[in-house]
Design a protein around this nucleic acid. Structure first.
Lengths: 207, 207
DNA sequence: GGACAATTTTTCCGATACGAAAATGAGATT
DNA sequence: AATCTCATTTTCGTATCGGAAAAATTGTCC
């Protein structure tokens, strides 16, 4: 509150206020109704709606809970390339190749930035030697489906587990993990990661 | 700032701080690094991490942008049953059956509540008549992979598209959509939805 | 141990958030 | 016209935010 907050364009704060005003208008509520529901002062809500004031986190939570709105609605991704109504199709073989030390994998839908999920496919060569010194970690959650062959899943602190076609795994991807073919033939996998950061989907979330 | 903010349990503010601290720790950053990246003062970040201070909306946006984190990461479902370090395996055939008007599908990992992703498999009977009066919609994003057979994907406002084994689609699931087998044989699909709300994973996200 | 650098926390102060109350504006009624 | 009600905005006092600098703590090296 000392350094002038116009460090940030007022357009952000004003946008927040517009959303709030829209929510209220859609409901046909008065400022008083909002105040009652949220426990915030009438004047506070008025000022926020007009972008004259910026709420603290505490008060934002209080407001969101009070009026029954999910907090994330106030922070919808800006600059996100995933568009409302987005619909994309990737025929088999449509991917962008990406390589890490351990894998070569096929990013699906690389043109869609900032997706909530990052799907990719990969082949695990039979007999490949994995670099076990270096478990892979990244924030978020990961779903693995074995499409073909057999895969050994190494998860830090866990005994290795072998999955075959149709088997799947779901885990916290910040836990060190590594995949390897477990059979005499190459294995084929699908991996879907939650995108923990607003990174370029072509960046390796699995380095 | 006049009415004491402890109107709201400090646990919320403290939780926000913990997440911020965790992000920093995972990166191996100092407070100074965070400060440089975000333009906030070192002391501010320290206080926020320890729950001693609550940021305003403006500053939260500034922080999130500066450190390259999507704001919604700070509001991920609380009371989530997905545990840090979680690791679960589902052998083929391990699922919970769920039925809607149009589909019978197999929820994977139903025991894990509040996952960021909801993976499920399904079979689409050949020659089944779909109820086209009623597109399916639910908030969030959806990834579809055709495992076997051919599938017609109907997306509201779009021409139907036929996908075959290995083809995939990624789209905004709030857009009306519907799947149907497109071949003489049954089709097999994998669908992964983002879980837009803290709902029971056994609840139908696709009714 | 001491010296030093790096990191974090504390202090202090100006600016802003926030609420209660007053003022204003608009519409309805007499 | 005046009066009343309701909704919104403005005012003003207090608490807290937020930053710069100082102090404290931690880590490393000799």
């Amino acid at each position: 509150m000392s350094k002038p907050q116009p460090e940030l364009p007022d357009s952000q704060r004003a946008e927040f206020g517009r959303r709030l005003h829209e929510i209220r208008r859609n409901r046909g509520w008065t400022l008083h109704n909002m105040a009652e529901a949220s426990g915030l002062a009438v004047s506070t809500i008025s000022k926020v709606e007009r972008g004259l004031m910026s709420l603290t986190y505490d008060r934002m939570l209080q407001l969101a809970r009070g009026i029954g709105v999910d907090m994330t609605e106030f922070f919808s991704s800006e600059g996100s390339s995933f568009q409302p109504g987005e619909f994309a199709v990737a025929p088999k073989g449509t991917f962008e190749r990406a390589e890490t030390r351990n894998y070569v994998y096929e990013m699906l839908f690389p043109q869609i930035r900032n997706k909530a999920m990052v799907p990719m496919m990969g082949s695990l060569k039979a007999h490949d030697l994995m670099d076990f010194d270096d478990f892979v970690r990244h924030p978020g959650q990961e779903f693995l489906l074995v499409l073909e062959g057999a895969v050994t899943v190494f998860a830090e602190g866990k005994a290795p587990v072998v999955l075959r076609a149709g088997d799947s795994a779901y885990f916290d991807s910040s836990r060190g993990h590594l995949y390897a073919s477990a059979g005499a033939t190459d294995a084929r996998i699908l991996v879907v990661c939650t995108e923990a950061e607003t990174t370029d989907p072509r960046d390796d979330p699995r380095a």
